[in-house]
Amino acid sequence: MTTEAAAEQARSRPQWGRALRTSGTLIGFLAIIIFFTINIPGTFLSLPNWLNISQQVSMLGVVAFTMTIVMVMGDFDLSVGSMASLAGIIAALLFRDSQPVLAGVIVALAVGLLGGLFNGILVSYIGIMPFVATLGTLTMFNGLAFLLSGGETIFGRDIPADFSSFARGGIPIGSVGERTLLFPNLTIVALIVLALVWLLLEQTTLGRRLYAIGGNAEAARLGGVRVRLLRLIAFMLTGVGAALGGLMYASRVASANPTQGAGLMLDAIAAVFLGMTMSEEGEPHVLGTLVGVLILGVLDNGLTQMRVDSYVREILIGAIIVAAVTSSSLAKRGR
């Protein structure tokens, strides 16, 4: 190595500093697990509890993984929660109309795609800031869900057993006492989505170009990237993810309600942010998002088991997100 190459490498800062900066969130996650393992002995670290956690976070996971796709470009989609509710309502209405399960699912996903297309057109072709555009569509999708459902929850006989049993089912992997241990179907769906998003973002030209747009949109455009088209595609994928998350939720609770997706958006964005603290350049990566989702899910699960008040739980989760992002940006300031 020449002296100048050495100097170039010296510019890239000490190794241990980088390690600390990018693994702080992971260390925090381990600390949380150790804390709950000690305070909820026996149950917390058991396989059934972790299968339970994986099922609890599967809807959030799907929404957060696909949210990562737009956040890679530096954009947001605030409409994912109301899209999730809308998708559940649309499927449930079709079920009430005695349409087959498959048709309901396909139509609901198509609505997600169309909603994403609409977001994408607003952001990419009309040029509205994603925050404003998707805040608008959040309200629109929300209103539409209320309008279509008449503001009521659709449940009971209207929801076919084929649909709701999916969320209760899984692949048997053993037994505890007389109970069969299932690897939940919802977890499998989330893992498939995770794998697809990982492939897309890390292994395809589309993913590479999305990261380029996020790094410097003008440089990407001058470097031969179809910025507008790709942004549109990314929003469509996030829309489909939101609709899928909504369907999973509806299947799990065997009902559809125009507000049931409401909490997903903030948690999904929080999970992506938590993941971003784990990358050197502060970019979102879907595996980082997975850690973010697990942190949120584990906290929720552990604190519930410790009978912590749900309001206190919210304060704690919010504080942890702020702490992670703060420590990461403080560490970056030092460079």
Partner: peptide, 9 residues
């Protein structure tokens, strides 16, 4: 910086 490179990559 502004038009040429994606510095974070």
């Amino acid at each position: 910086r502004s038009q040429g490179l994606i510095l974070s990559r």
